[in-house]
Design a protein around this nucleic acid. Structure first.
Lengths: 335, 335
DNA sequence: TTGAAAGCGCTAACAA
DNA sequence: TTGTTAGCGCTTTCAA
């Protein structure tokens, strides 16, 4: 399985190997005749340029690292898909790593990416705490954080406007006639979640309604956790709400599952609104209304931001906050 | 952002750079004292070995290509997750590419992977036709096909036993009392789909029931296509079945959507069985019964198979066919 | 046990 | 327009 190199091509074409390099790189300092001859030989010999060797001298691998918590998570695979599309058209390839939300694995992933000399990293952190832990790495390679709002951290990140999204959702529910809205899944240790809870609180205040919270006691958010939480919620006395605003779609799905078991009808008995608009939300029978993260846009802004950083070392950093939109489906109804 | 190299370390440690290399590679021809000193310096200087340079001389990048049709597809992201886990523990990283089921993009992906000198490729082809089209590439790099059964093609692949899976599903439905079972989504151009349809036919024959088919006229399988097909199915005259066996879960989801619109109740009016057991099948309100692909096992067998091939060029090829299992949920009921 | 030097496949500066 | 050569960061003989 010996690969054919530029030297093999040169030998066959009867030129020096730097001439072959020129032909391949589209240099103008070469005659049209030689170029064509060389290109023909390349074709014939099935020559594929060795990007690794090129990387050594160019100091660019055309590889971008993508560190996600879990590619299996629809939120992440949605982003990954768009990131791959965006970068491929610009000649970059993606090196993927899952962190499983484990800081140690995040560190490992960075280490690996650096070893592979990726030109930059798109990093979906497991929590804002990742920033401090990985600061040293981030100084060594252009990095943009994606998905998590890191507030005033001096690094580039792109995120949806979580505060505004929560306001939007609350206002929407209010518009449907709901006055008793429970915010489900407030969680510590995540700026994103903090902002969402704050947005909800702010909207409640403006609307003149009383905020109610049911907190997420788990360190992460998943359907399963949402389900267990929801069971607790529904089991407790004195509930008084007509709508639930779930902090994430996965939480909302957990609520649906609990409601289903308990015979609580959605939206007849309570309305349910999610946040993220993951693919699952649009599935038949689910039809989850949700505050939408503009995945494609998030991906493309993150990619642009990273490539900017790569081509211009001194560019500083930027925080790009995108607007969410409301996706109305069938889990929300007028009171 | 200049990276520290082995030479920088050597200078600080006061040794030659080949000594540093030895310390790092765990060579025994070095004194314990020097090794420790060097390792300490590496630590202190934040040295990360340049895998690219190492790859040049070792002729191994420790990179594996993963070509999927679409990482956004739960079937694929499921596999990708497990593949990443499996390979990471063995020191490999994943370069990801989406083909969008487009043969031209598959070719491009191979070209890119070869350029990056990946040590091997796990390839989830869009169709069996991919094999012929990409034969030349496959000769140049260890490759294993995943997900699609390529029958007697002289290349390694790992796949579930689609024939047996379809038999299993049919038998299960029969056991529930169903005698009129419609096979939904038979499609040309995919061995996988052919085998599933054949397995169904075989089971029908053994069971003494009459097979009924509703063909997929689209070139691909998706919820949307399944939905459109199902609308056609339900609109036609003379339907006579109590259960539908969908060729894939995505098709089944499409059927659910159509049934929902039309007020057809599942499983009260008809039972519905899927194939693949993608993550969506287990969602609340969906509860799709399905023939399960053992994703984790598929991934780990594919990884083993590929690493085998990489370490032993002459290993020939192998076809690994895994057993499916039946996952019973709530879309299937006794007649 | 350590150092010197060749070479992996390529690009780019310099010569011709 | 083309060829020669140095060198990217590393591993690995071969000498010392």
């Amino acid at each position: 399985m010996k690969n054919v190199t530029i030297k093999d091509v040169a030998k066959v074409a009867g030129v020096s190997y730097s001439t072959v390099s020129r032909a391949l790189s589209g240099s103008r300092e070469i005659s049209e005749a030689t170029r064509e001859k060389i290109l023909a030989v390349c074709q014939e010999m099935n020559y594929t340029a060795n990007t690794v060797a090129r990387a050594m001298v160019m100091k660019s691998t055309m590889l971008l690292g993508l560190i996600v918590t879990d590619i299996n998570n629809p939120f992440m695979s949605e982003l990954a898909y768009h990131i791959d599309r965006q970068t491929r058209t610009r000649g970059y390839n993606i090196v993927l790593a899952n962190s499983s939300k484990d800081p140690e694995q995040e560190r490992e992933a960075f280490e690996l990416m650096l070893g592979h000399q990726v030109d930059g990293i798109i990093f979906c952190p497991s929590s804002p705490a990742s920033y401090n832990m990985l600061k040293d790495y981030i100084d060594r390679v252009p990095t943009v954080f994606l998905g998590e709002n890191l507030r005033d951290i001096p690094q580039s990140y792109v995120s949806v406007d979580n505060f505004r999204g929560a306001e939007l959702g609350t206002e929407y529910l209010y518009g449907l006639g709901h006055r008793k809205i429970l915010y489900f899944g407030r969680r510590r240790g995540s700026t994103t979640h903090q902002l969402r809870a704050d947005g909800y609180a702010s909207a409640c205040k403006n609307l003149g309604i009383t905020p109610q919270y049911f907190n997420n006691t788990f360190p992460t958010t998943s359907i399963k956790n949402g389900y267990q939480l929801a069971k607790q919620l529904f089991a407790q006395e004195g509930n008084d709400f007509t709508a639930i605003f779930a902090s994430t779609d996965t939480n909302a799905l957990g609520i649906m599952q609990a409601a289903e078991e308990l015979g609580i009808r959605i939206p007849e008995d309570i309305s349910l609104l999610g946040f993220d608009n993951i693919r699952d939300a649009s599935l038949p029978r689910i039809h989850l209304s949700s505050v939408e993260q503009p995945f494609k846009m998030l991906a493309s802004v993150a990619v642009d931001c990273l490539l900017d950083k790569i081509s211009n070392d001194q560019a500083g950093y930027s925080h790009r906050i995108l607007y969410p939109a409301l996706k109305e489906r069938k889990t929300t109804a007028r009171v």
